[in-house]
Nucleic acid binder design. Structure first.
Length: 877
RNA sequence: GGAGGCAUAGCUCAGUUGGUUAGAGCACUUGCUUCACAUGCAAGGGGUCACAGGUUCGAGUCCUGUUGUCUCCACCA
């Protein structure tokens, strides 16, 4: 392998795109299936096809890529399926807005066919944008398997599922109150509605009792305009105040309709006036009440939010009508009072319009039967949420589930495969187009106009992307998938639906682990949003700092499931880390001959610090691997950070510089092999997090294989464990730190090198450490002595050694004594505490042996330090 | 109304089944143009782990309550 050199500065823009193109060209992202190896598969949570990459995606994809790249290096058949979602409402609204802006037209002006063609055009134009943005992040999805929820095969899956559920009686069509958005002009599922507390008014209105001149019933309402659709007034069954009213007839003000007073258990006597006006067509509770009392359903507001009831208010906007009606009631003397109140108002999650509850015919999935296995799969641990607390959220929702409204009055989406015979009224549900009525033979067939909820198709994503309803190799190899990575905000929308659909149609869970992460917030903790304008564009971060720095910033410093604050400072810090690694690698390369053997030297050739770093590396491998198994992505990464920066750069490299600067020596040759191994293994561990920089360095180092991406992941082994060398180096490091501290405290300039007199019971260790002390502790000379007169010297006492630095000009005898006494007092405190612990029966008998041993070792060290301190103090007198 | 999260250094956050003297990054102080890196090196200061009880040999960690804060769910007209 020829010697290569890295450019002086870390400039990610110069190699990230090049490396990504190389990986793609070589097909590394596409698994080469080996039946003897286990599979690890994931499906991407499909971003909206017309969307743009935001920080939430960046976090989600980074975490997935970390898992996938690790498994791939570990030798699994690793598949990560990418794709996009057609995102019904979001996409349709975008195209509609475009149409209005450019041509001043609505979708109705151009018609269904032409409009859909426009959406497809839009999709063709912008659908690849989010994909290319994902690629900038470095994600290792198998692009040969890219899917779209409206691909032919995925649409076929949707039809198959719809028809099957319908045939089983689990899909039905019914008149229900649905959340209607007058702006988007469609029904919404409960999940698509956001409730916000708002200031409003409580209007108390009198309804005259028929035949009893001057007697009224007073109702309280927050929506007086719905009075037009009232078909009853209800009171609580046991309410004595109104017991005599039940069964009487009221005359509806402004309308004149006669309506009954009924007793209904849904009424809370203590709330409002205890009398509730019932508007079955425009309120979910009232609808239910209406069913119980066979009340008429009278629509008075249409889908655009305008009054549809004949009469004075016809055609008015609902809020205008409200004002008019209140005014008119007041004029009639029927308005008793207006009470200010706060109440939850439903808004469309897309356009924020106030939702109008509307009774209409919609398609529903009956959820009870489907939910049961989905509940037990999680309850029995077949599917595991990480962190576990999210299973509570899931179960709570699943156990209280209501039927799922799946029809949407949109054009963009999967058109419901139901057909109506115009002649005999037959409803036909079929996977194939229907042109003839099977019942009456009529050709007057019309397909349902509505399309399905977007989540209907994404619920099938884990198996539809693998080829279902076909019987494919991919399904056999990669289903169920291993891990689903997503944010907690989408558990009820999506995760839950995949679970019951997977169990129903595959007879098997769609994934084993659900790894949940939090939301990315801005530096002030606010949600990033377009309207606030506080969003940070991941692509801008990538172009200024590199994808690796962004990935690092997102993957570190927060625990699973917790929200994180994102700031440019974090990215800068990540970039600095990359730069550190870059420069350490440059240093290593500068000192290589380029033809180093990649095997490690034998044990007896290794220096103490070599064994120390190899042993530390071995522990790092173990710990990083274990943490990744537990999805402790952030912990694993911070361990890598500490190892690379503190252990490798600040200590190992500094320790071995003298050896490397004498390139002809045998010792240098040994060191070169060790340092290449340590750096390479560290790069491999880091690669899943920072794929680009690690690849760029890996390829510049002497290496085996053509890419770090497909290099085997390091494994820990006992042969690489050197506990006694670790202990030895720790003694030396502790002493060097002590010397540096005292020198800094005494303001000894770095240029002033000093002789060290060392008293120790580990003479071999410190004789062997002479070179380290000369270099890292600004020593001019080392002498091991049996004792030393402390006068005129600064002393450093550790449990392993006492060092005296003759600095008579800088030493204040009294201060030195006071310092040693303070140190002694502290150590004595520690001894007392530790002794107390060890004298405690309960502790020694109940605590684990390792903990007790730890305390004993500690005590020994304290005692050694105490003895050394006393000796030094004695020598001072 | 129900459920859940969070509360640890000036700031942002780690702290994995309870077990050394509670950690990191940023910020701060001091000293360094040391030939990989000033996007750096060395050293340092800084915490009553929100509060009150409890369990335990031992609690930042487990339990109960209180306070503050955020989020989700929910039809009180």
């Amino acid at each position: 392998m020829p010697k290569k050199e890295l450019p002086k500065t870390y400039a990610p823009a110069e190699f990230e795109d090049r490396l990504y193109a190389m990986w793609c060209e070589r097909g590394y992202f596409t698994p080469k299936y080996d039946p003897n190896r286990p599979s690890y598969s994931m499906v991407i949570p499909p971003p909206n096809v017309t969307g743009q990459l935001h920080m939430g995606h960046a976090l989600d994809e980074t975490l997935q890529d970390v898992l996938v790249r690790t498994r791939r290096m570990q030798g699994y058949n690793t598949l990560w399926v990418p794709g996009t979602d057609h995102a019904g409402i979001a996409t349709q609204i975008k195209v509609e807005e475009n149409l209005r802006r450019e041509k001043g037209l609505t979708r109705h002006d151009v018609g269904r066919e032409a409009f859909l063609e426009m959406v497809w055009d839009w999709k063709r134009q912008y659908g690849s944008r989010i994909i290319s943005q994902l690629k900038k992040l470095g994600v290792s999805c198998d692009w040969t398997r890219e899917r779209f929820t409206m691909d032919d095969n995925l649409s076929a899956a949707v039809k198959r599922v719809f028809v099957t559920l319908y045939d089983k009686g689990l899909i039905y069509r019914g008149l229900r109150i649905t959340n209607w958005c007058p702006h988007c002009n469609t029904a919404l599922s409960d999940a698509e509605v956001e409730h916000r507390d708002e200031e409003g008014s409580f209007w108390h209105i009198r309804y005259p009792i028929k035949g009893e001149e001057g007697r009224f019933v007073t109702v309280a309402t927050t929506r007086p305009e719905t009075i037009l659709g009232d078909t009853a007034v209800a009171v609580a069954p046991g309410d004595e105040r109104y017991a005599d009213l039940v069964g009487k007839t009221l005359v509806l003000p402004l309308v004149g309709r006669e309506i009954p007073v009924v007793a209904d258990e849904a009424v809370l006597p203590e709330f409002g006036t205890g009398c509730v006006k019932i508007t079955p067509a425009h309120d979910p509770n009232d609808f239910e009440t209406g069913l119980r009392h066979s009340l008429e359903v009278i629509h008075v507001i249409d889908g655009t939010g305008k009054i549809s009831a004949e009469g004075k208010y016809f055609g008015m906007d609902r809020f205008e009508a409200r004002r008019e009606i209140v005014k008119d009631l007041d004029a009639l003397g029927l308005l008793v009072k207006i009470e200010p109140t706060t109440h939850a108002v439903a808004h469309c999650y897309r356009c924020a319009s106030i939702i109008e509850p509307l009774a209409s015919k919609q398609w529903f999935v009956a959820m009870k039967e489907l939910a049961a296995p989905a509940i037990s799969a999680v309850r029995e641990g077949e599917i595991r949420y990480v962190p576990d607390r999210f299973s509570k959220i899931y179960l709570n929702w699943m156990e209280n589930i209501k039927d799922w409204c799946i029809s949407r009055q949109l054009w963009w989406g999967h058109r419901i495969p139901a057909y109506y015979c115009q002649d005999c009224g037959e409803v036909i549900v079929s996977e194939t187009d229907v042109t003839v009525c099977p019942k009456c033979g009529s050709h007057a067939i019309r397909q349902e106009d509505d399309v399905l909820d977007t989540w209907f198709s994404s619920a099938l994503w884990p198996f539809s992307t693998l080829g279902w309803p076909g019987d494919t190799e991919d399904l056999r190899r990669y289903y169920p998938t291993s891990t689903l990575v997503t944010g907690y905000d989408i558990i009820t929308f999506w995760v839950s639906k995949m679970i019951f659909m997977g169990l129903e149609f595959m007879d098997e869970k769609p994934f084993t682990d659900v790894f949940i992460h939090g939301l990315v917030r801005d530096a002030e903790g606010r949600k990033m949003s377009k309207s606030l304008g506080n969003g940070i564009d991941p692509l801008e971060i990538i172009s200024s700092y590199g994808a690796d720095a962004l990935r690092f910033a997102l993957a570190t410093g927060n625990a699973p499931g917790n929200d994180m604050r994102f700031s440019v400072e974090k990215v800068e810090s990540a970039r600095n880390f990359a730069n550190k690694l870059w420069n350490a690698s440059r240093f290593v390369m500068m000192n290589l001959t380029g033809d180093e053997e990649l095997s490690l030297p034998s044990d007896d050739e290794l220096a103490t610090e070599d064994k120390w770093i190899l042993s530390r590396l071995n522990r790092l491998v173990l710990s990083v691997t274990e943490n990744l198994e537990k999805y402790e992505v952030g912990v694993a990464l911070s361990e890598l950070y500490d190892f690379i920066w503190d252990v490798f750069c600040d200590w190992y490299i500094e320790l071995v510089k003298p050896r490397l600067f004498d390139p002809e020596s045998k010792s240098a040759a040994v060191c070169r092999r060790v340092i290449v191994r340590v750096l390479t293994d560290t790069l491999k561990l880091l690669h899943p997090y920072m794929p680009f920089i690690t690849e760029e360095i890996f390829l510049s180092l002497p290496h085996e294989g053509e890419s770090i991406m497909v290099a085997p992941y390091p494994t820990a082994c006992d042969a690489m464990s050197y506990p006694s060398e670790e202990a030895e180096m720790d003694r030396v490091i502790a002493l060097i730190r002590g010397i540096r501290f005292r020198r800094a405290e005494r303001n000894v300039p770095p240029s002033r090198r000093t002789k060290l007199f060392i008293v120790t019971k580990y003479p071999e260790t410190f004789r062997g450490a002479e070179a380290y002390l000369l270099k890292l502790a600004s020593a001019s000379e080392i002498e091991l002595v049996d004792s030393y007169s402390a006068e005129g010297a600064v002393s450093i006492v550790t449990d392993a050694a006492t060092v005296y630095i003759p600095l008579s000009d800088l030493v204040d005898l009294e201060k030195e004594k006071a310092r040693l006494l303070a140190e002694l007092a502290r150590i004595e405190g520690e001894i007392k505490r530790t002794e107390g612990k060890l004298a405690n029966e309960g502790f020694t008998s109940k605590a684990p042996a390792a903990v007790v041993d730890g305390e004993r070792t500690k005590l020994e060290k304290y005692r050694a330090t105490e003895a050394a301190l006393r000796e030094t103090l004695a020598a001072l007198k």
